[in-house]
């Protein structure tokens, strides 16, 4: 996992609530056995017309959206399927953070494991950002993970919540599997103790 460093960026606004993972990456692109090449298909059905030509009005096809590393979304971003292809596609396209008032649980977990920062802001901040972008599409925000601060275009700041564990993993580029693997003794102990007390399920192969 890449280490996460503070950065400034423009914003790509998508003022839609409940943006689901089927829009982020349509299911027909999930037949791949690799993680690569998904960025090209990000938001495919909103981004391209029936002939595969970019739709000029879609935000990622406009210069201000194309240059952004931060996506500004409506409420409950990333609902729907558990596909990790969604954060893979966002990251491969170049996004490093998504701002919303809330994230669907599975998407949020998947994003954190891929150095894509889910930034939760109050409704009022979200509305202010959308409004700012209408008058100044080139407005920028600054994201600082160490202080968990989002600096808005007007210079004001808002602190966003994040569990310390996920934050440490992102800052240090540690992945969770390495952390779990260090607890193999505890896992083995749990398994053997459990075998003595509960024998409620038959093994799958039995």
């Amino acid at each position: 996992m890449e280490k996460f460093i503070a950065f400034s960026s423009r914003l790509a606004p998508l003022p839609i609530d409940n943006l689901d993972t089927d829009q982020i990456i349509p299911a027909r692109f999930l037949k791949t056995i690799s993680k690569l090449g998904l960025g090209d298909n990000l938001f495919y059905d909103w981004r391209y017309d029936a002939d595969g030509n970019p739709k000029p009005e879609f935000i990622l096809n406009r210069p201000e959206g194309h240059a952004a590393n931060v996506l500004l979304a409506g409420d409950n971003f990333g609902c729907g399927s558990s596909r990790e292809h969604a954060p893979w596609a966002l990251v491969q396209y170049g996004f490093r953070a998504v701002i919303s008032t809330s994230f669907a649980d599975i998407f949020r977990g998947n994003a954190l494991k891929n150095s894509l920062l889910p930034i939760v802001v109050p409704r009022e901040t979200q509305e202010r950002l959308f409004a700012t972008l209408q008058t100044d599409p080139a407005a920028t925000v600054k994201v600082d993970l160490i202080t968990q601060t989002l600096t808005l275009p007007d210079g004001s700041t808002t602190v966003f919540p994040l569990e310390s564990f996920a934050k440490t993993c992102m800052l240090e580029g540690v992945d969770e599997l390495g952390y779990i693997l260090k607890q193999q003794d505890e896992i083995a102990k749990f398994e053997s103790e459990r075998k003595l007390t509960v024998d409620t399920w038959e093994l799958v192969t039995a």
Binding site: H85, G109, K113, L177, Q183
Partner: peptide
Amino acid sequence: GIGTSQVEHVLAT
């Protein structure tokens, strides 16, 4: 439901 990274975690551990 879990993501693919977690599928890997559960497979391994």
